[in-house]
Write a protein that binds this DNA or RNA. Sequence first.
DNA 1: TGCCATGTTAAACT
DNA 2: GAGTTTAACATGGC
Length: 247
Amino acid sequence: MPEGPSIVLAKEVLTPRIKNKIIQKATGNAKIEMPLLQKKKVTEIKSWGKHLLICLPACTIKIHFLMFGSYSIDEQIRPDSRVRLRLEFAKHKVYFYTCSVRLLTTPLDELYDWESDVMNDSWNARKARHKLKDIPDDLVCDALLNQDIFAGVGNIIKNEVLYRIRLHPETQIKNIPSKKLSELVLEARNYSFDFLEWKREFTLKKHWLAHTKKTCLRCNLPLIKKYCGKTHRRTFFCSNCQIKYST
DNA sequence: TGCCATGTTAAACT
DNA sequence: GAGTTTAACATGGC
């Protein structure tokens, strides 16, 4: 569930079912003021990076699925005690499990920079480049996971993007040639949309080239699995095909 | 069977 | 106070 494209998919599925519909009842073990949701109309469903945003007239329900979160529609797939949030509408019921639920009262445009969400129409590649310039010493594997720069990019996308553009995950941002940096920013978004389509067709895993793979399909050498950078996230790469630029 | 992972936050440390 | 490490969350796949 977690990475940006999965959230976009959830938004697509939920919108026709609950947009402009009234929440008849809100329950669950989420530590939020449930009564605030009662009888409120869902005006919009948005996403920013890995955040799913269910907008009501006076507040927004922010859902973050973390690592294991899930949701279901019209069918409760876990016991009542595990339901974090249940939204009941006239025709549909939506269930959220194992996720973080918060209520936002600040206008979203003040909280979120839509230009930093790789899935958003307003995605601003130039801005991302500038932000990268501000963290010259960071490794690219960490930079890709930085939600202030690439909101929505997760560990799978990170690994696949770096493999695609043949860039070593432990390359420092300042050493990446300008052209390669452009490629990085471009592919962070491109791959995310490929991810979305594959996820939609339930064929995402089949398309992984590096993530969880043992062998480089380009040169046939074993892929390295290493917990890279300050994020210490699982990183799969080919030390032969992926160039590590240095000073 | 046990380990580990598409993630983030906050507390507990140094 | 900064930076780093750990725990917590709690499910499913291998």
